[in-house]
Design a protein around this nucleic acid. Structure first.
Lengths: 187, 187
DNA sequence: CGCATTTCTTGATTTTCGTCAAGGCTGATA
DNA sequence: TATCAGCCTTGACGAAAATCAAGAAATGCG
């Protein structure tokens, strides 16, 4: 149950054993069925989640009902609805499971305690907050093909595990465009 | 000298007077002439800056030499090179003054102390880290015109104070496109 | 297994934005 | 005041991606 998150934390902070125990004790487990919502629009996100197993999609629904994917997550990754978490305002975005999943939740107040303990954990939180990965795509102005090539290198698992329409949405292009890029590359 | 930053901090955290004094004592003042660099490519950013007066542009230079604007800042705003700050690695980006300016610098270690004191300051740091404002444009997939309309509402001062070519770059479009949008809107 | 639904591909068409180029405007400076 | 440089605007054009539409492939489900 806690093996993976312990490994993940140790890679990031390597806290003393008793601190790690303290943290683990505060975790809560949550099962999320396929298509279930971890965060719904209007809810306030006050936890950070570690995925024990399963897949999640983080997306925004516009006024016109179109969904645009903010991020995609696979097992043993951390996630949160950063905007809501930071502001403690209701979220405009959703996080939805795309398979039966299990997550461990760490509550904001416990995180805050942890940041008192460890500067490196503070930094981890920042990195998570930033959604740094997804920013990478958007800051550099890349062509759709360059974005896909970059994704293949930086996060190849995504292409394995998510439908292409979500991948396309994540990269900010239509499924048709992605399909044509993939065809072109495979030649 | 410290009036504006005190007001800003009080809006965010309202710390006890003695803590505020402690913080103010740790600030260092830095004059930056027009076109001077606060952060150069290759430098590591270990401070957060508060702008007493002046304007700054935060941008990335690609391999081909093109500049893309990450954010624009005016007086009494906070700024930092978040990626470098978080990772404590040399920055790939620059922060340059676009007018004669004066900033107050708060060093990372002092910030860390502050986050021990106040959860709200911790949150502020996160927001700064995220470059949340600039993300807003990129997450929702807006048309160039929608981006500009949104900017006019959320940060009208930018349009007052920065050349349109920087505004355009900030929104991820060419100056020509912005020029045409402005013409269209003004009709 | 067969049906229904979703996802993916492909083609035709349209739209949008970038690029290139030229000219005007403005502000700084000698 | 004349000159120059940088900035902004405008037009013509082309490339790239979105849209629209149809059909194929894959998946889920009774």
């Amino acid at each position: 149950m806690f093996q993976s998150i312990i490994e993940s934390i140790n890679r990031i902070v390597s806290p003393p054993a008793e601190q790690l125990t303290l943290l683990i004790e505060r975790l809560t487990v949550r099962q999320v069925p396929k298509d279930g919502f971890l965060i719904r629009e209007g809810q306030t996100c006050s936890s950070v989640y570690f995925i024990n197993h399963g897949f999640f999609r983080h997306f925004n629904v516009s006024e016109t009902g179109e969904e645009s994917t903010i991020d995609l997550y696979i097992h043993h990754e951390w996630m949160l609805e950063y905007k809501s978490f930071v502001s403690q305002q209701p979220s405009q975005n959703c996080i939805q499971a795309t398979s039966d999943s299990e997550v461990l939740a760490l509550h904001a107040r416990d995180i805050h305690d942890l940041t008192r303990i460890s500067e490196r954990f503070f930094r981890l939180m920042m990195i998570l907050e930033m959604g740094m990965r997804s920013q990478e795509f958007q800051q550099n102005r890349l062509t759709p093909e360059e974005k896909y090539q970059k994704l293949l290198i930086t996060r190849p698992e995504l292409v394995q595990h998510f439908p292409l329409k979500h991948i396309a949405s994540y990269m900010g292009m239509t499924p048709e465009t992605l399909s044509r890029i993939r065809k072109k590359i495979s030649l």
